[in-house]
Simulated assay, not measured.
Amino acid sequence: MNKYAVQLAFAYMGVIIGGGFASGQEILQFFTGYGMASIAGTVLAGLLFAFLGMQIARISTTSQAQSHKDVLCLLFGRRAGAVMDILLTFFLFGVGVAMLAAAGSLFKQQFGFSPVVGSVFMTVLVVLTLCLNVKRIIDLVSLATPLLMALVLVITTYSLFTSNADLDQLLTLSQGQETVAPHWALGAVLYASFNIAVGFPMLAVISGRSRDIKTTSRGGALGGVGLGLLILLLNVSLFSNLNQLHGAELPTLMLASRLSPVVGILMTVSITCMIYSTAVGMFFAFSARFSSPETGRFRVLSLSSCTIGLVLSFVGFTTLVGSVYPLLGYLGLLLIAAVLVNWFRGRSMAAGVVNDIA
């Protein structure tokens, strides 16, 4: 498969995964709490990510999108697209700020440092990355994903072989888990809607810089399949050890640390990388909305937005997640609906052309 398609897939996965996925908290609330039905939920989410990734990449490449606004105007029309653009741009910045705050929380919990240290460290990394060219950004963001994939495979294998609870006990424990929706299918759709809104802007910009529709479409689909596989593996490992994860804020890290202190350190590094990749994706897409990448104006805007984001991050990670993420989920549902309508229209037009020829 084309190397660019694989890089695009890893970048797509890296931006969406973020710190919440790597820590295991998102998977617990959106999937594991539904018991055995969570397997079906992970499959549904993976299919949605693959389909949406492929369609967004196709639309972006076809239109040669310079920013996510170009794609939004195609999907929603000029006026509604402009409104969606304003809303999404605002939330992009909000998620970027939340990632800076997440780095502060991680450094405090793992190393006992002041949250300011972690937030400043992450801000500096993000600014330095955004000063590179686009290809280097894709390379750096995509590098973090294979590390997490390897760690999830190791943790899943370990969890399955060391689980000391029977299925009935695990099912009972899963019923006591907090979930985001009354049904597993709705939980999977909500997970996809929130995360596709996060991944859409960077996927649109990266795909728009290529003229090879087949390559970018494959990259989007491959990234979605990879996301589905990661969700499935992490869900299985968490479910099989529910009896040992009560009250854990970072359940994945707990499993990794139990396996080995070295694996625990590697997982801490992995979570940091995921926070980094999401932060880079958010601030990159935000800055690309107002200026062309690899220009002096883009670098100045990146520095300014990250500095402002650093100050706002001191509000706290939990507060930011509680206020920004739910609203972004609703925006994601609108985006999914628009992509589906665009896909149906494309199929209808193609069918009409075939009929006319016949």
Rank of each mutant, 00 (worst) to 15 (best):
L203A: 10
D212N: 09
S287E: 07
L92N: 14
L301M: 12
L222K: 14
A65R: 10
G104Q: 04
V152H: 08
L303P: 01
S237K: 07
S210I: 03
G96E: 02
V300L: 15
A102G: 12
T215R: 05
L160W: 00
L232W: 13
L242H: 09
D139P: 04
P182S: 13
C273K: 08
L320V: 08
P182G: 08
V353I: 08
L171G: 03
G281H: 09
L238R: 07
A57N: 07
L132W: 14
V83D: 09
R78A: 06
I155D: 07
T61V: 02
L74Y: 09
S287L: 04
L28F: 08
V353H: 15
S323Q: 12
S270L: 01
C131W: 14
L320W: 00
S302T: 07
S277C: 09
G104T: 05
L147E: 02
I308V: 15
V339Y: 04
I17Y: 00
E249T: 08
H183L: 13
C273S: 14
L227V: 07
S302C: 11
L303T: 13
L233N: 01
C131S: 13
P115T: 02
T172A: 15
L74I: 11
Q66T: 15
A102Q: 08
F90Q: 01
Q55D: 10
A221V: 02
G20W: 04
T145E: 00
G112M: 12
S142V: 01
T307E: 04
Q64P: 02
D139R: 04
G226D: 01
G322Q: 05
